[in-house]
């Protein structure tokens, strides 16, 4: 058996703007894995990729829109969901995927995501949660665990982080899941389910940020992955209230919620558009 020399065709190359690869994400950054899981789910989902749009906000994960060879949209900070909502309302036949980070979706754009979940707009939202603001230098974010050190909390974070699955579930999301980049197969399958789910689907992906977060908390990328391996528990159907992010107590992963509720467009058509017979 021989080791072949560099061959130019990775199975996902058809979905990637290869001229921009290697991407800017740091060595050990989990966004790349979440990104390739998302692409793999798209690749195998059987969806019409000409009618698929990827929308990203600002931040490290916001770069994903620029790396896909799909129609994609790199929007202003925190506003990925509003752009995606507009796109979905204008062209309901599009499959819209929002791929963005925790800071963009839950801090700067926090209001938008709760209202999109409340309206049950038919979007698939992938939130890469790296527990800090990575691109700007590792500042404390709304998802930083209590007592974790960041650039702006050198003695440890005094605040409590958001529980993202609980937040979106309480706001009205109809598909809620959480995985880590180590659970890549489950993540890919979950993205596929979310793509075929009607309504607001939310998947949180825990990803290491070795440069911003890991360096200040004495976690090498492989240590973080080891943490994902040893301190997580897969519990499908768990109550999102149990899904508090605390690696001391163990982190619950899995598909928490999958239910059906009329989507925003269906409700709008039902209540605000008169049937043609009544109009005529």
């Amino acid at each position: 058996m021989k080791k072949a020399k560099a061959s130019p065709s990775h199975p996902l190359d058809a979905l990637v703007r290869t001229e921009r690869i290697p991407h800017i994400w740091c060595p050990g950054c989990g966004i790349g894995t979440a990104f390739s899981a998302c692409l793999m789910a798209l690749h195998t989902s059987g969806l019409d990729l000409d009618k698929t749009v990827m929308v990203s906000g600002i931040g490290c994960s916001g770069r994903a829109a620029g790396y896909t060879r799909l129609d994609s949209y790199h929007t202003t900070h925190g506003r990925a969901i509003p752009f995606a909502t507009g796109m979905k309302l204008a062209k309901p036949e599009l499959q819209v995927i929002v791929f963005s980070g925790d800071g963009d979706l839950f801090a700067i754009g926090g209001n938008h995501i709760i209202h999109a979940a409340r309206r049950n707009i038919d979007l698939t939202v992938l939130c890469v949660n790296n527990l800090n603001y990575g691109m700007t230098g590792g500042q404390v974010a709304a998802t930083t665990p209590t007592l974790a050190k960041t650039t702006t909390t050198p003695r440890g974070n005094p605040e409590q982080p958001f529980n993202l699955p609980l937040l979106v579930y309480a706001a009205g999301a109809t598909y809620v899941a959480r995985w880590t980049i180590l659970h890549t197969r489950d993540l890919t399958q979950s993205v596929q389910e979310a793509l075929h789910h009607k309504g607001f689907a939310f998947i949180e992906v825990l990803a290491p940020c070795p440069t911003g977060y890991g360096r200040r908390n004495k976690e090498r990328p492989l240590d973080t992955l080891k943490l994902y391996q040893e301190r997580t528990l897969i519990k499908n159907g768990a109550n999102p209230a149990e899904a508090f992010l605390d690696f001391e107590r163990g982190v619950v992963l899995g598909k928490f919620v999958e239910e059906q509720r009329p989507t925003c467009i269906e409700m709008y058509d039902r209540t605000c558009r008169l049937p043609d017979s009544a109009a005529g």
């Binding site: 080791k3 190359d13 690869i21 290697p22 966004i31 990104f35 890919t188």
Partner: peptide, 29 residues
């Protein structure tokens, strides 16, 4: 300037694709 991985034990591979899906850089399959 990085050290890429190298195949040391080619006969053991069972084509599980895990390296491919865990790689953040689309660099191995």
């Amino acid at each position: 300037g990085y050290h890429p991985p190298e195949v040391k034990n080619p006969d053991a591979c069972v084509n599980c694709h895990y390296c491919e899906i865990i790689c953040p850089d689309l660099a191995i399959f």
